[in-house]
Amino acid sequence: MAYVFYLDKLPLPVTPSRITMSIMNQNKTINLINHGEVNILKAAGLTEIEFKATIPQLRYPYAIYKDGFKDAAYYLEFIEKLKINQKPFQFIVTRTSPSGKYLFDTNLTVSLEDYSIDEDAEEGLDLVISFKLKQFKSYSTKKFVIKKEATANSKAVSTTATNRPTTNKPAAKTYTVQKGDSLFNICKKYLGEGNKYKEIAKLNKLSDPSKIYPGQIIKLS
């Protein structure tokens, strides 16, 4: 079986012989009176990945060089940037059979948690780097601005929350008709009430509300 390991867009020159992927969980076991232990199932945790990779100082016929031979210093600089840039990157492992048939791949957004560099006389001039990666999931925070009341000696500050709760049916001023649409369903989805189709038909000067066509722009307000 053939493997190719990518850190961001850079393939490792020598494929690691072993990789350990720990699929973590966040389940919690608690003890209920008279019922014993129960397990509370929660969303899966972040996957952790560990492997060792040889970084050669010399060119080997079995090594992978995407843009020509690069010595160990090039890879060390690249790996260090992954560590200090404080940005996630893609970790990809592709797998093919000896006959060249694609099997499956691993493609995760990760952060470089730790790495260590080993220099061993048995490896000659080559380096061995141990990697610890952790799956990365993006997130966002909500920001709110507090409205300040006006006083006799100050001006009113009219501000609203910068991240307002949204409804499942946001209002729209216009809508472009898609294949399979009906005016009733459009009104139900975007105005919250399908029976408004007569009002919208009148607004758009439609003589027959049942005859709308893909690409037609419908005014909703």
Rank of each mutant, 00 (worst) to 15 (best):
residue 140 S to M: 06
residue 9 K to E: 06
residue 34 N to R: 00
residue 34 N to L: 00
residue 215 G to F: 15
residue 157 V to F: 10
residue 63 A to R: 02
residue 115 Y to E: 01
residue 89 F to W: 07
residue 158 S to E: 15
residue 125 L to H: 09
residue 64 I to P: 01
residue 31 N to C: 04
residue 216 Q to Y: 09
residue 4 V to Y: 08
residue 116 S to W: 11
residue 194 G to Q: 07
residue 67 D to M: 11
residue 103 L to F: 15
residue 26 Q to V: 15
residue 175 Y to V: 08
residue 58 L to E: 13
residue 22 S to R: 02
residue 181 D to Y: 07
residue 102 Y to C: 00
residue 171 A to P: 00
residue 70 K to F: 10
residue 129 I to E: 05
residue 168 N to I: 06
residue 212 I to C: 13
residue 177 V to W: 11
residue 38 V to A: 13
residue 111 S to A: 07
residue 51 F to P: 05
residue 175 Y to P: 08
residue 209 P to S: 01
residue 164 R to P: 11
residue 183 L to E: 12
residue 28 K to D: 03
residue 108 L to A: 08
residue 138 S to N: 06
residue 127 L to C: 10
residue 209 P to F: 03
residue 154 S to W: 06
residue 190 Y to N: 13
residue 32 L to D: 01
residue 175 Y to D: 07
residue 78 F to Y: 11
residue 21 M to D: 01
residue 22 S to N: 03
residue 54 T to V: 12
residue 45 G to R: 07
residue 3 Y to D: 02
residue 158 S to G: 15
residue 77 E to C: 04
residue 178 Q to F: 13
residue 58 L to A: 13
residue 204 N to T: 05
residue 4 V to T: 13
residue 121 A to C: 06
residue 30 I to D: 10
residue 37 E to H: 00
residue 119 E to S: 01
residue 65 Y to H: 09
residue 203 L to A: 14
residue 132 K to Q: 07
residue 214 P to S: 15
residue 115 Y to I: 04
residue 196 K to Y: 04
residue 64 I to D: 03
residue 46 L to A: 06
residue 212 I to Y: 12
residue 137 K to L: 07
residue 76 L to C: 14
residue 184 F to G: 07
residue 36 G to M: 05
residue 179 K to W: 05
residue 55 I to F: 10
residue 142 K to A: 09
residue 13 P to E: 03
residue 145 V to P: 08
residue 25 N to Q: 13
residue 175 Y to M: 09
residue 82 L to A: 00
residue 200 I to L: 10
residue 105 D to K: 14
residue 112 L to P: 02
residue 103 L to R: 15
residue 115 Y to F: 14
residue 38 V to I: 15
residue 157 V to M: 11
residue 154 S to M: 04
residue 32 L to F: 03
residue 172 A to D: 07
residue 114 D to H: 15
residue 69 F to I: 13
residue 80 E to W: 09
residue 193 E to H: 06
residue 146 I to W: 01
residue 178 Q to G: 14
residue 54 T to W: 02
residue 115 Y to G: 01
residue 169 K to R: 09
residue 111 S to T: 13
residue 113 E to V: 14
residue 194 G to T: 07
residue 117 I to W: 02
residue 210 S to Q: 05
residue 149 E to I: 14
residue 20 T to Q: 09
residue 183 L to M: 12
residue 196 K to H: 05
residue 168 N to P: 04
residue 64 I to C: 02
residue 176 T to C: 08
residue 14 V to T: 01
residue 129 I to N: 05
residue 17 S to M: 06
residue 19 I to C: 04
residue 65 Y to G: 10
residue 81 K to W: 04
residue 93 V to H: 04
residue 202 K to P: 11
residue 199 E to V: 11
residue 93 V to D: 08
residue 119 E to P: 00
residue 206 L to F: 00
residue 143 K to T: 13
residue 220 L to C: 10
residue 122 E to H: 03
residue 138 S to L: 03
residue 104 F to Q: 15
residue 39 N to R: 12
residue 203 L to S: 12
residue 4 V to R: 10
residue 13 P to D: 02
residue 105 D to I: 08
residue 46 L to R: 09
residue 99 S to K: 05
residue 105 D to P: 06
residue 39 N to I: 13
residue 121 A to H: 09
residue 10 L to R: 03
residue 49 I to N: 12
residue 88 P to A: 14
residue 75 Y to G: 13
residue 96 T to L: 06
residue 96 T to G: 03
residue 201 A to I: 09
residue 128 V to A: 07
residue 3 Y to T: 04
residue 48 E to V: 02
residue 168 N to V: 05
residue 3 Y to A: 03
residue 102 Y to L: 00
residue 42 K to A: 01
residue 120 D to P: 00
